[in-house]
């Protein structure tokens, strides 16, 4: 808490260089600090006084964006949410440090989807993507169309359900 007087009602989570920072604010402090739109700024940095200027020295990894959904590293750092399953491969570098601090390991050891049961719905998903592709082409959104084409390719790929993450 910042003022340590009133009950914290606004809780911010910010991901920075693979570390999670949390800030708890009461409503009054939140207003004073202008915290209305939690997605707008690197808020935790701002509030913890850790210097927004760092934002300007972008490493090459912040410039990458996901070929499937278009999410950028900056989007991810702001929201803490990924855009699609393929983001795990795209942002692997950023994620690995993050996952290490969040979890007990960085490798999955639990349940796996049952083998030997080809998912019948894959064809539905394919149909869905083809419909989206047609729509994107119709409105001449070729960037989007290219992404959808890549997803269709991924879905059809022979490596089954295993993503090359």
């Amino acid at each position: 808490m910042i003022c340590k007087q009133r009950e914290a009602r606004v809780h911010l989570t910010q991901i920075d260089q693979g570390k999670i920072k949390k800030v708890d604010l009461c409503e009054q402090c939140a207003k004073e600090k202008g915290v209305d739109d939690p997605t707008g700024y690197a808020l935790a940095d701002l509030l913890l006084g850790l210097g927004a200027p760092q934002e300007t020295t972008r490493s090459s990894s912040t410039a990458t964006s996901c070929r499937s959904c278009g999410l950028t590293a900056t989007d991810f750092k702001k929201s803490g949410r990924l855009g699609c399953p393929d983001c795990y491969a795209t942002f692997k570098d950023i994620l690995s440090g993050l996952l290490e601090s969040m979890h007990r390991g960085t490798r999955h050891t639990g349940k796996r989807p049952g083998a030997g049961h080809p998912p019948v719905v894959a064809s539905d998903q394919l149909a869905l993507l083809q419909q989206q592709l047609a729509e994107a082409i119709a409105v001449e959104n070729y960037e989007e169309a290219a992404r959808i084409r890549d997803r269709i390719k991924a879905l059809k790929s022979a490596d089954g359900r295993v993503l090359s993450a």
């Binding site: 949410r81 990924l82 994620l95 969040m102 999955h108 989807p113 295993v162 993503l163 993450a165």
Partner: peptide
């Protein structure tokens, strides 16, 4: 459900979710 729905899964990261937590 995994017999009819194709879940996003990676060998390394397991089931893939919107939030890495």
């Amino acid at each position: 459900l995994s017999k009819t729905l194709d879940f996003a899964f990676s060998d390394e990261f397991g089931y893939l979710t919107a939030c890495p937590t």
